[in-house]
């Protein structure tokens, strides 16, 4: 399947709707048996409900994050108020690093290193409105089934499973709160059936009262002796970066392409994102002078695989929630257009 698609005309805002339209256009040609379609609608309904619940409910809970042999615990507070989300995540183990996510930006505080990283939020989530074409694509590359009913964090949860139909992607198992649709547990599974990463609530209170103070950072502003690392938003316009990615697995479509400025780098960084509906893979290309001493090769954290390499005088990094071989294959196919 071709992964190329016409970029948005220069100057047109790359709204989520526009992106969806682009993705839909790519999938028009995909033919799937009707039996898949019913399943696909089913899968899409579950995902849509989970995304809506994650966004529009107010909840407080403890999360256990497992990646490889490591286990970390953190506290999550999510407030939905007047149509806006406010979210705070604090590490309970080790240094009390925290993530504050609000409408406009994501801030990460690293008190151990005295660093604040700020990234603007430019993209809204896709699930409330998966197009029929996207649903079909999902069904074509994953076998969807509704699994068992289980107890998670003391709540009754329905398991739903996305099993990949090829070796190019991970399997997903989600446990969804039966009453609200909120994800209580999410697991990424490799081709050997091993869990590569898991996020799970061990306790959660849904629909409780949360004050605004509970979702504010523990530091007011940026403490004077801290470093502020601030990125800038993409220009919101799909741009041709001049880089081509030729070997993207089937089912992955380009959802954005453009330049971003990261942490005060001199030159903007090219960023291209592909998604198969369940995960995304990002391709970053920047001048080699921007990243002296950067490690090359494969890196990994839990379900996130990273592959970095030099292409001429540029540095290519591909990362995403896909197996290392898939990420590497994509990286090796990055070339100047």
């Amino acid at each position: 399947m071709s992964i190329g698609f016409a970029p948005a005309p220069q100057g047109a805002p790359a709204t989520p709707v526009r992106r969806l339209a682009q993705i839909a256009a790519v999938f028009v040609a995909v033919a799937v048996a009707p039996v898949h379609l019913a399943r696909a609608q089913d899968a899409s309904t579950w995902l849509g409900k989970a995304a809506k619940a994650a966004r529009e409910l107010t909840y407080v809970g403890t999360i256990v994050y497992q990646h490889g042999p490591r286990v970390e615990t953190s506290r999550l507070t999510h407030l939905y108020e007047n149509g806006a989300e406010h979210e705070k995540l604090v590490n309970l183990d080790g240094p009390a690093r925290e993530v504050i996510r609000s409408q406009g930006e994501v801030r990460c505080y690293y008190p151990d290193a005295k660093i604040v990283r700020v990234e603007p939020r430019t993209f809204r989530n896709v699930f409330p409105s998966l197009s029929p074409q996207q649903q079909q694509a999902l069904a074509q590359f994953y076998e969807f089934r509704v699994g068992e009913v289980a107890r998670v964090a003391g709540h009754e949860a329905q398991a739903i499973v996305f099993e990949p139909r090829d070796g190019l992607r991970y399997g997903h198992k989600f446990w969804v709160h039966r009453d609200t649709g909120l994800l209580l547990k999410a697991r990424l599974i490799n081709e050997k059936g091993e869990v590569v990463e898991q996020f799970a609530f061990t306790d959660i209170a849904i629909g409780v009262r949360v004050e605004r103070d509970h979702v504010k950072p523990s530091w007011a502003g940026t403490p004077p002796d801290w470093q502020l690392k601030e990125g800038t938003a993409g220009d919101g316009v799909a741009q041709d970066t001049g880089w081509a990615v030729t070997r993207v697995p089937p089912g992955f479509v380009k959802i954005t392409e453009g330049f971003r400025t990261l942490r005060g780098k001199r030159d903007p960084v090219a960023h291209i994102v592909f998604s198969d509906g369940l995960v995304a893979v990002s391709v970053f290309v920047e001048s080699i002078t921007g990243v002296p001493g950067q490690a090359l090769g494969t890196m990994r954290q839990g379900g996130l695989n990273v592959y970095s390499m030099k292409v001429d005088d540029h540095f290519v990094t591909v990362l995403g929630e896909a197996p290392a071989a898939t990420v590497r294959q994509i990286a090796l196919s990055v070339a100047r257009r």
Binding site: A54, R55, H78, E85, L89, L183, I255, S275, A280
Partner: peptide
Amino acid sequence: YSPATALQGVQPYLRAV
């Protein structure tokens, strides 16, 4: 940009912290 963020909110940012 990851669909995981749409489904799980801020949780996947744990990878970064």
